[in-house]
Amino acid sequence: MKHLTQCTLAVVAALALTLGATTAAQAAGKLSIYHWFEYIPQELLDKFAAQHDVEVVMDTYDSNEAMLATLKAGALGEYDVAVPGDYMVAILIQEGMLDPIADGERKNMGNIKASFASPSYDPGWKHSIPYQGGTTSFAVDTAQYSGDINTTDILFNPPAELRGKINMLDSQGEVLTMAALHLGIPQCSQDRSQLEAVNDLLQNAKQHWASFNSDTAKEVLVSGDVTVGMIYDGFGAKARSEKASLQYAFPKQGWVNWMDNVVLLKDAPNRANAILFMDFLLEPENIAAVTNYARYVDAVKGSEAFRDPDLASQPESNPPAGISGAFIETCDQATQEVYDRIWTAVKK
């Protein structure tokens, strides 16, 4: 017993010493990134650090909302750039938590593809640059179900054989947006009959859903726990590679588009380096390195030349022409409160 205690104390002391000793080598400048884990290759960060002689430090978060909460709790001013999703960019702009960038400050803005020229969540890219994007809909195991999968009826009005075999993402934004697309009503509608229709739809459909699961959305599909599962396109591709019969759907009513963006945070301690970093990521070769690593889609002209060829042919990345998806919109406070009540009622 005594030996155990002594050993433990010695180990702790040794570790405490190593803790105190870890200080990074000093570079001329610094760049503080607030990012998702495993969403940027380390080599790219090293390349940027070497090119501009800056020390790059990265902190990570696991969801847009967690990032917002951390910034709201007082972390604004610690980071230079963050990588929020589309609707979160809009929220950050509304909250005044982003620093606008003047025209011409970023040299490489011309590299952004024409089709992405001015997104609804940040018109004219005044605060952000596109990073990686894709879609969210659902995947179906075609070995279990042979009917038409390209309709949101699969989620909200499922045929008998799919009932009780559906996994939804545990995320209000994605589920309510899909519901609005299914009903063909505008997102964040203030019309009471439309909001009631959304509520009724979800209350009705809930009985057919097996689970709400975001953390292991891919695994429940691959293991066969469910036949239908809401999923991001990239995970849809991974799921298909693990189980060939899984097919990613592009419903005719529409799907959810998403785009993660690099934003300049307000009170950034190293604003100039943040601008450099944005320009760096707008160079085709650099953003293609991200795309090859993360396996989504970027929005920079000429990056195709540097991309893995198999990415282009992925069915998940090639929505059919003629129909389109929608970005999740940010509702006003009153509507958001109704949305919250609808969501609570689904999960009460």
Partner: peptide
């Protein structure tokens, strides 16, 4: 940990839960 950690400090749980873009 996810809230009180600072730049450059990951723990195994934050790495595992944070890998939402790549999956487990």
């Amino acid at each position: 940990t996810n809230f009180v950690k600072g730049a450059g400090v990951e723990t195994l749980p934050t790495a595992i839960f944070g890998a939402v873009k790549q999956g487990i």
